[in-house]
Amino acid sequence: MTVAAPAAPLVDAAAGTEELPPPRRRVGSGAAALLGLVPFAAYLLIFLALPTILTVASGFVDADGSFTLSNVAALADPVIVQTFANSAWLSALTAAGGALLGALACYAMAGLPETGRTRRIVDAASGVLAQFGGVMLAFAFIATIGLQGLVTLTLKDRFGIDLFAEGAWIYGLPGLILPYLFFQVPLMVITFMPAMSALRPQWAEANLTLGGTRAGFWWHIGIPVLAPSFLASLLLLFANAFSSYATAAALASQGSQIVPLQIRTALTSETLLGRENLAGALALGMIVVMAATMSLYALVQRRAARWQR
């Protein structure tokens, strides 16, 4: 900002003459500016648009490169339907659990100053843990509830409880629930805390002045105001779990119980259910689910943003 102060009068003078016919004053320079957008546009085209198009297109192409609907038809195969159901179930369960625990954490921090120490530490920790998905999380849970994990051994030695009496479930679908919660709760804190902070103390005062009770405040004011934000965060958590791959890939070494793992199998083993290019069809299915979830999210978030001004 050191530049701005001495130059301020000059800016006013310049702005007066320059801004009348908007930016049309230098035609050559305008074209040059447009040229400046080209590198980034080209980059997005090659590494965002093209892969997305290729993904979708590959779902409609057979091994010889001609058009087919058989890959997409394979989405109706009972195995694939079960995989999508597993993914949806796991995502919904961890989204609901993460949303409830995360909202509880936000409630515990309600009324704390936003720039205070507690909020800052929680913000930083949530940021790290929400990003702490993937392979490292898988190792964390192998060390915790794996066959030789600390919790497993403690339960067995001290309390005689065998976590794995019913088989090594940690390497299957149920084993993903706890690790997923580990990144879902922090994400909930990140996305829901702004809504919680937007609750005005004045509303509570008005409620008390008018003879309301503390429970009445939550029932008539707090919960209705926070509901859209809660729903939006819930949708985001669902999308987050649905698209997560690395933790499952590192933890569930056998079988492909969820869609991202099924895509891995389709990509690495060439033929699945006797079909080529099934990865494209599976990816298409994922895009549809993600697009639906995120559109709904944007819709609800717009409603929720009303109270966060």
Binding site: P51, L54, S58, A239, F242, I263, L267, M286, I287, M294
Partner: peptide, 11 residues
């Protein structure tokens, strides 16, 4: 909105 696992098919 585009999971990495989806992008990788096209990449």
């Amino acid at each position: 909105s585009i999971p990495a696992i989806v992008l990788v098919v096209g990449l």
